[in-house]
């Protein structure tokens, strides 16, 4: 054994050590964390290779038409790690709750018109169902993503969706206190399941939830559905809210859109990485073409319930197009 080389300690993990640059905290704790993609292993997970979940990952992750030789080279442009996520969002929540506090103290809701309150009851508070589907779909994307750096972004996105949903729940309760006759806290499910205004988003998300190929899920959710929801519902309600004296709605939408913008940053980075592989652009374009009509129809259906339609619908759809155009597809 005397001529055998004895491995020496390295400055960082061996998988990061080949590079000259000192790895960041983000890289040390975020890169290559999955082990279900080990080269040469019989199956993703250490069980019978044919057990259902192994086949599921082989089909819906490894077998995706979107290919890349090294998904682990993906980096979150924001380099968020758990610690910084909580730090950042605690700060954001402190801001949002101070809004709630101040506006409540100023009797903000009492100044809203009953008509606007009715709009909120029909077109805002049922949104918790919609955002919950985004939470669920993001968590699916997280569990199927082919790299931990992608998985983390999708996980934080699921958490952010729950954040937005929680804001709605909070506002539902507050509004119920002021407008007892508008059905706040009672009628949301009925609106979500029956009101034509919601059926487009509902169809879009129910179908996105069963887009089980990881990359199709990503495209449908992050490039099509979320932008449609963010532009067609959140931003729109924020804008219209401002005109209706609902500063809480507009400031809240602004606060949430900070998260949405971050989601678009990582989505854009992932698209950029995917485009390194020939053929992927077509795959992505194909999915966008498949999903966009549903999203556009969702925006149309939703905005048709608002006086601002159809201009608002066009603006929202245009914003989603602008986002996708920025991806260089």
């Amino acid at each position: 054994m005397s001529d055998v080389e004895v491995l020496k300690p390295l400055k960082t993990w061996s998988h990061l050590a080949a590079r000259r640059r000192k790895p960041s905290e983000y890289e040390i704790v975020s890169v290559n964390l999955q082990y279900n993609d080990r080269p040469g292993s019989a199956a993703p997970y250490e069980l019978d290779p044919n057990v259902f979940m192994n086949r599921w990952y082989v089909q819906h992750r490894n077998g995706s038409p979107l290919k890349h030789k090294d998904w682990n080279s993906f980096r979150d442009p924001d380099e968020l790690i758990y610690r910084t996520y909580c730090l950042m969002q605690d700060g954001q929540e402190t801001y949002v709750y101070s809004l709630f506090d101040q506006f409540n103290a100023r009797e903000h809701d009492q100044a809203l018109t009953p008509q606007w309150a009715g709009t909120l009851a029909r077109l805002y508070t049922p949104g918790r169902y919609l955002l919950h589907t985004v939470q669920m779909a993001s968590a699916y994307l997280a569990q199927m993503a082919p790299a931990s750096t992608i998985e983390n972004c999708a996980s934080f996105q699921a958490m952010d969706s729950f954040r937005w949903l929680s804001h709605i729940a909070y506002r539902t309760k507050e509004l119920e206190g002021t407008f007892a006759d508008k059905g706040f806290g009672k009628d949301e499910r009925q609106y979500w399941e029956q009101d034509p205004a919601w059926q487009g988003f509902r169809e879009l998300m129910e179908k996105t939830l069963v887009a089980y190929d990881w990359a199709e899920c990503f495209v449908a959710l992050n490039l099509v559905a979320k932008p449609a929801i963010e532009e067609g519902m959140l931003r729109l309600l924020g804008n219209i809210g401002r005109r209706n004296g609902d500063l809480v709605m507009s400031l809240l939408a602004d606060a949430e859109l900070i998260d949405a913008t971050r989601h678009r940053r990582w989505a854009a980075s992932l698209v950029k990485l995917a485009m390194e592989t020939e053929g992927n652009a077509d795959v992505i374009r194909g999915w966008i073409a498949k999903w966009t009509p549903l999203a556009d129809a969702a925006i149309d259906a939703y905005t048709s319930a608002l006086a601002e339609s159809p201009a608002a619908a066009e603006a929202a759809k245009q914003a989603t197009v602008t986002f996708r155009a920025s991806l260089g597809l």
């Binding site: 169902y129 729940a169 949301e188 399941e193």
Partner: peptide, 13 residues
Amino acid sequence: DIARNTNWTPKYV
């Protein structure tokens, strides 16, 4: 409770 009242009946799938 409002934040965890989000079950719905699917229609399109």
